[in-house]
């Protein structure tokens, strides 16, 4: 299994984490203003690349924090992990 480098706890087994799918998908600022097609895009459409993918993981069995990871979806090579930027 993957050894995932939690930005706070360090490398841990993949089974300690919970997958959070694509990173960087913001909740719409004004959902009421969206058309059905735009709302559908937010609800149901996510990137699905064959290659590097920026995705969210949480260290659910450890510190329980969420972070972003860039991982290659073919080789599972982990390119980077980063802490969320607080705005």
């Amino acid at each position: 299994m993957m050894l995932i480098p939690c930005p706070w706890c360090g490398p841990r087994d993949e089974s300690e984490f919970h997958y959070g799918a694509q990173a960087g998908v913001a909740y719409p600022a004004d959902p009421g203003a969206l058309s059905d097609a735009e709302w559908a895009r937010y609800l149901f459409f996510r990137d699905n690349p064959k290659g590097p993918f920026a995705e969210r993981w949480s260290h659910s069995v450890g510190c329980r924090r969420w972070f972003t990871m860039v991982r290659d979806t073919v080789t599972n090579e982990i390119h980077s992990v980063s802490r969320p930027v607080l705005t």
Binding site: M2, D13, E14, F53, T73, V74, N76
Partner: peptide, 13 residues
Amino acid sequence: DSYNGYGQRGAFH
């Protein structure tokens, strides 16, 4: 397996 993957393999757990 919970994550997106095109590798035709998964983890042993």
